[in-house]
């Protein structure tokens, strides 16, 4: 299966995956089964908008307007970031709302 998200796909963090404050090193960290991934501000901005309700398309639009950046560029960056997490099973995806 392809890891790429469609416009209407709604990503979410499955049970056992969460974003927490790293109180020793600072910043946020993504914790999942046997892995910890330090998040840069961009990763944090993406993951903080993932709630299982917001679609990939809406997420990209929100980021593009918040950071005044071109949507095509943002879309590519977010897609690459989320596909990597999806391969590790750190995010899961619901289809479009029916």
């Amino acid at each position: 299966m392809s890891l790429a998200l469609q416009q209407e796909d709604r990503p979410f963090l499955p049970r056992g995956v969460r974003v927490v404050e790293d109180r020793v090193r600072g910043g946020k960290v993504l914790l999942g089964p046997e892995k910890a991934v330090a998040l840069d501000p961009i990763g944090e901005a993406i993951l903080s908008r993932i709630d299982g309700a917001t679609s990939f398309g809406a997420l990209v639009q929100d980021l593009a307007s918040t950071y005044a950046a071109p949507e095509t560029q943002i879309s590519q960056d977010v897609q690459r970031f989320l596909a990597g997490l999806r391969a590790r099973m750190f995010i899961a995806v619901k289809g479009p709302k029916t």
């Binding site: 927490v20 790293d22 020793v24 090193r25 960290v29 914790l31 046997e34 892995k35 910890a36």
Partner: peptide
């Protein structure tokens, strides 16, 4: 936890 460990096995 206080010294920065995140994952406990």
């Amino acid at each position: 936890a206080d010294m920065g460990v995140l994952q406990l096995h």
